[in-house]
């Protein structure tokens, strides 16, 4: 009798912990997507927390220092590192992505100071949500400089 009570209690605790983890995962999950994947699953992804990586197209960078608004467009790069290596390394992949007019692209808005590393052919890793207007609203912006890819550290400018 006593034992059964304990088992019931342990079951209850277990169930609530599982539920807590399950619901928190739903709330805190971040999807890692490429630009292609994001556009293919646009409907389903609106409002969810997403991390997407792409090549910064230099001509599209716009910065308003008064409102601290940064806008730019990123082009698709493969998400798989082996694939990147097979195509000749990150620097080459980024350069090609920017030149190729047929690549899928997405516009990014970030409110904050424009990081120094935000320039043509940089790799941007943005975390945020996709708006209904098809614009990606980034809360966090990490940039990697392609030539110093190995040693590059995240730029200060990630807004958290």
């Amino acid at each position: 009798m006593e034992n059964r009570k304990y088992l019931f209690g342990i079951f209850l605790i277990l169930a609530s912990v599982v539920y807590l983890i399950y619901s928190s995962v739903k709330a805190g999950q971040e999807y890692f997507l490429t630009v292609d994947e994001l556009l293919a699953r646009q409907e389903e992804m609106i409002g969810r927390k997403i991390r997407v990586s792409g090549a910064v197209i230099g001509d599209t960078i716009f910065y308003d220092p008064e409102k601290l608004e940064v806008r730019f467009t990123i082009a698709h790069v493969p998400g798989d590192l082996d694939e990147v290596e097979a195509q000749g390394g990150m620097a080459k992949v980024l350069a090609e992505a920017v030149r190729d007019p047929n690549r899928s692209r997405i516009e990014v808005v970030y409110y904050g100071v424009k990081p120094d590393l935000l320039r043509n052919e940089a790799q941007a890793i943005v975390t945020g949500t996709l708006g209904e207007d098809g614009v990606f609203y980034a809360d966090e912006l990490l940039l990697k400089c392609p030539t110093k890819y190995e040693a590059a550290a995240p730029e200060a400018g990630s807004g958290r």
Binding site: L20, I21, S23, S24, V25, A27, G28, Q29, E30, Y31, F32, L33, K49, R51, G79, T127
Partner: peptide, 18 residues
């Protein structure tokens, strides 16, 4: 097969009640 991680909101939401 989905690449995903959990961020601070996951931990805060789960650790708060605990």
């Amino acid at each position: 097969g989905e690449k995903a991680s959990v961020g601070p909101p996951y931990y805060e939401r789960a650790m708060g009640p605990l």
